[in-house]
Amino acid sequence: MSIRARRPDEAGTWGNLSADSLMTHIVAAETPYTLYFMEEVTARPGWAWEPREVTPGCRPVMEIAGIDRRLIGWRSIRRQQIEDALPVLTARYEERQGHAPGERASYALACQAADRHARPSAPSCCR
């Protein structure tokens, strides 16, 4: 399926949107939504947010302040299973391809790891 749109040229011709260009702007598009969501959740019940580092070196995940870390750890078992599977999948990729995975391949490998450890009732991250 392609996404058709009118080009901003003078003739008003039609063309396909590039998924690559859309992906480059996804964080910029997601940020206002996330900020609005956080504002609404904060305003109504009066909760606060705090950053939590999930992956060292990556931007933190914002979560509701005051959640007991033991509860987060208990719910993070699947995440640990995914993180444990990822190096194995990455090594297999490097062996097959002869190089380290790029950004897209890394994302696909993370999805594979998540699919292998999906909760039965949870949807896959990549479907």
Results as ranks from 00 to 15, higher is better:
22 L>V: 13
40 E>K: 11
92 R>E: 15
94 E>K: 07
68 D>L: 06
105 A>T: 09
111 C>M: 11
67 I>P: 02
123 P>S: 12
46 G>M: 13
43 A>L: 11
17 L>P: 04
33 Y>P: 01
124 S>D: 08
41 V>N: 00
93 Y>S: 05
103 E>N: 10
93 Y>N: 04
51 P>D: 12
13 T>N: 08
105 A>R: 01
8 P>Y: 06
23 M>T: 13
43 A>D: 12
15 G>P: 01
77 I>D: 12
100 A>M: 09
1 M>F: 06
47 W>A: 11
120 P>T: 04
115 D>Y: 01
45 P>V: 15
49 W>L: 12
85 A>G: 00
4 R>A: 11
114 A>S: 14
17 L>A: 04
122 A>P: 00
1 M>R: 03
54 V>D: 07
56 P>F: 12
101 P>K: 04
48 A>K: 11
92 R>Y: 01
56 P>C: 10
42 T>H: 07
108 A>I: 03
2 S>A: 11
8 P>E: 12
124 S>V: 04
79 R>F: 12
56 P>E: 08
112 Q>E: 13
110 A>V: 00
83 E>V: 05
116 R>F: 09
72 I>G: 03
92 R>L: 06
52 R>M: 14
79 R>T: 14
21 S>G: 00
61 V>E: 15
95 E>R: 07
81 Q>I: 04
74 W>V: 07
97 Q>W: 03
99 H>F: 04
115 D>C: 09
2 S>N: 08
72 I>E: 07
102 G>H: 07
9 D>V: 12
91 A>H: 06
68 D>Y: 03
59 R>A: 12
21 S>L: 13
31 T>P: 01
7 R>A: 14
94 E>G: 05
96 R>V: 13
27 V>A: 13
114 A>Q: 05
79 R>L: 15
4 R>T: 12
49 W>C: 05
13 T>E: 02
51 P>V: 08
26 I>C: 13
60 P>I: 07
127 R>E: 15
78 R>E: 15
110 A>N: 02
99 H>T: 01
9 D>S: 09
46 G>K: 01
72 I>N: 06
40 E>A: 15
105 A>L: 09
75 R>P: 01
52 R>G: 04
116 R>L: 15
1 M>V: 10
62 M>A: 09
63 E>A: 10
15 G>C: 08
81 Q>T: 06
15 G>V: 02
83 E>M: 13
34 T>W: 00
36 Y>C: 02
25 H>A: 15
101 P>Q: 10
108 A>Y: 00
104 R>L: 15
22 L>G: 02
3 I>D: 06
21 S>E: 15
16 N>A: 12
121 S>F: 10
55 T>P: 00
63 E>I: 13
38 M>C: 09
34 T>F: 06
17 L>V: 09
1 M>N: 03
70 R>C: 05
9 D>K: 04
101 P>G: 12
44 R>P: 02
55 T>V: 14
67 I>S: 01
97 Q>G: 03
70 R>S: 12
61 V>G: 02
75 R>H: 09
111 C>F: 06
33 Y>V: 13
100 A>R: 11
19 A>I: 11
121 S>H: 10
125 C>H: 08
48 A>E: 11
95 E>Q: 13
5 A>Q: 00
96 R>W: 08
95 E>Y: 03
